[in-house]
Design a protein around this nucleic acid. Structure first.
Lengths: 139, 139
DNA sequence: CTATCTAGTCGCCATCGGATACTAGCATAA
DNA sequence: TTATGCTAGTATCCGATGGCGACTAGATAG
């Protein structure tokens, strides 16, 4: 297990032009990718990119999110410098979340995912129906 | 919980130009986004976009993935029509996984995530260090 | 007969995530 | 006065998710 040698049947030598590191569990870029590849983080980023919002507003706008996951994801995003948190000492204390410039660059990268989902939803559902029907009628 | 009314403090009427549905838990696009926002799916898509690969090759190339999650994620991706599976009746049965045309369109959307991770890794790590050090020295 | 290769599946267990309850200070309702 | 609700969370319980190792099966190597 120390040296997982790559053995390919075809003479293809391994994709060198892809990227050297994201596939290694220890690489920092991999950790960042793991963070980005999170459904709640993506939805929060997209919402905050449109404008500053309070905690409960986010909670109401993101269907199915729990307080726990929302506060937890917001905390992680804040730690990563992607969103900023501002406490306003109003009568019931108000907390505003905003996207940072760094977060905005990430939003530019994740928004195509939402676009893709909306564009290709029909194709995905058709594939699912086909898969669930048969799978054994060849393909 | 039947009708979670959206109440904004500011007169902003809700982001109409963002998207109408991804934020509703029941919307199909949301389900697709949940699938896309999966770390293993992203890594598999990126690898298969470079070329057809066998199960164990993928397992060795993706650091930290378990057989269970790999076969499970591949099955989901196949069901969604994003990758195709081909069984080759060799001596120990060989299974080849390829990206489909539909999967290739998704790859075009997820690859910017990898690029972003590699580009902004330093900024994220700096933000994390700052967060872990103080947090109370304003921000 | 034992060991190895293939592509998985199964069971055990730790962690993750969802639902509910609770905090705390002020406003409204009865 | 007591009760309820609003704010932004936290704590707890418990089911779902995911990782690890063992196991399958058919053939080949020794």
């Amino acid at each position: 297990m120390g040296e997982p040698r790559i053995i390919e049947l075809a003479p293809r030598p391994l994709p060198k032009d892809l990227t050297p590191n994201v596939f290694m569990a220890e690489c920092p870029t991999r950790r960042v990718l793991d963070r980005v590849a999170d459904k709640w983080a993506v939805l929060i980023l997209i919402l905050l990119a449109d404008g500053t919002k309070r905690f409960n507003i986010l909670k109401r706008m993101i269907g199915g999110v729990s307080q726990k996951m929302l506060s937890q994801t917001l905390k992680s995003l804040e730690r990563d410098g992607l969103v900023s948190r501002r406490v306003i000492p109003t009568v019931p204390v108000t907390v505003e979340y905003s996207i940072t410039p760094l977060g905005r660059t990430l939003h530019a990268a994740v928004d195509p995912l939402r676009i893709w989902a909306e564009t290709h939803i029909a194709a995905v559902e058709a594939a699912q129906k086909r898969y669930d029907r048969g799978m054994d009628q060849d393909g």
